[in-house]
Design a protein around this nucleic acid. Structure first.
Lengths: 243, 243
DNA sequence: TTAAAATGATAGCATTACTATCATTTTATT
DNA sequence: AATAAAATGATAGTAATGCTATCATTTTAA
């Protein structure tokens, strides 16, 4: 009844599609909960198998190892974010309004938490915040990139940078700004929760809202800048002078 | 002859100070080269011991494990950056000029590469770019924070945020901006080198310089913004409207 | 010269990260 | 309902990893 969303990710990330079987969904469901609880370092397939009462071998039939599983989860998350952006910005004529919605989704998406029954989006958001850097900051980036593992993340950034260019077609750093917004959305929430002295959020109030406000500030200050920045600035000064 | 810089880091990060013995320095020197080459995942103490012709047990006498060693190296790096900032900004009256120097150091520090003989600062910079997130994005952040492992990073960010406030005393997000500058300095270089479609640098020209220019743009656009941002913005709109 | 500190040499052990094989159960097809 | 195919279970095993412990030897400092 009603409609149903299927989120699909790069097939090379899994050996057998976990979304097509009961056990597969159980693997997704409980790996999210367990990684959220214990962190990817302490998590392993043996513990997961025990938790969901199956054999270790069965888990290995779905994923090569826990790193692929993590990559799968993170990729799934970005695809889910893209879906939400698509869904909530269609028919919006104003690109500025779009960007505001996107920022809100990046920060607060995890609050809306009942779309896919076997995925705890809040927990997954925490995983992405804490662990996602491990999926691409590695010596294997190049290989993983060739396999297309970052396709979903890239297309998200691409979507954001297109909107940035709608707002300000002369803006010089659309892609860098897009990536910066996405990463800052993660990092500032992480700081606010774990190392508050590195953030400016006051822990009393709503943390996510404050991060959102900071992102609005970054985005619109940079895009509204009167003087479009020149990429041809003299680089040889090495920061020693000030003009 | 001349003078000598000693960079000291939190004592809890090592079992025996590697800077005080010949073997210790060899451990630092070659671990930097090896982690740079193979990444922290493939690196281990057995390989390191083989490389420098000592026993595995000897390495374990200096560091509990490779994660502590990584944390030590990253911490050392931030302390080294702080020293350079101290050194190159003293007696500068203009805080804007200071911030420009800091940004240049964050991006290009590794080019000046002959200060401490057993540390390859270029390689260390690459390690910090690729691996540093693993030192704090972990379930153990809280514990590590209590041990003071992030003291050096925090004091760097503090130093930067103080200068930000000198430039614009009313600025609402001095710490978040400081952290953002530091992290963006790492991330954009990583992207430019590994996933260029996520950055706006043209690979032909000097990558570091372009990243520097981007950071100048962020810093001074945000700080020069006429309307100081209000932290009391209405958060309940959830990005759905645009006023 | 002698004690202390550092390192070497060797051994061992529990855990991890898989892989392989064959048996059993579940599911889909006709 | 019969049967093939797919999925999972059960079990076993192996190579590598990440240490720790012990005692001998060398180097360094007093």
């Amino acid at each position: 009844m009603g409609f149903c969303i299927q989120i699909t990710v790069n097939e090379k990330l899994y050996l057998k599609n976990p979304q097509e079987t009961k056990l597969g969904k159980k693997i997704i469901e409980h790996s999210i909960l367990m990684i959220d609880k214990m962190g990817i370092e302490c998590f392993n397939f043996k513990k997961l198998a025990e938790e969901i009462q199956c054999t270790e071998a069965s888990v290995y039939r779905y994923f090569e190892n826990k790193n692929y599983l993590l990559m799968y989860l993170v990729t799934w998350y970005w695809e889910w974010i893209k879906f939400q952006i698509e869904f909530r910005t269609t028919n919006m004529p104003d690109p500025r309004a779009k960007l505001r919605v996107i920022i809100a989704i990046l920060v607060e998406s995890s609050l809306a938490n009942e779309i896919i029954e076997y995925v705890d989006e809040s927990a997954l958001h925490r995983i992405v915040i804490t662990e996602s850097a491990k999926t691409y900051r590695t010596k294997k980036v190049q290989d993983h990139n060739e396999e297309g593992f970052y396709f979903h993340y890239k297309s998200l950034c691409r979507k954001i940078s297109d909107i940035i260019l709608e707002i300000n077609p002369k803006y010089c750093y659309p892609r860098a700004l897009a990536g910066n917004l996405v990463e800052t959305a993660l990092l500032q929430v992480f700081y606010a929760r774990n190392l508050p002295s590195l953030s400016d959020v006051s822990s009393g109030k709503d943390v996510l809202c404050q991060v959102k406000t900071f992102l609005y500030h970054i985005a619109f200050s940079l895009l509204d800048e009167k003087a479009v920045f020149q990429n041809t600035v003299n680089c040889s000064t090495n920061g020693r002078n000030n003009k």
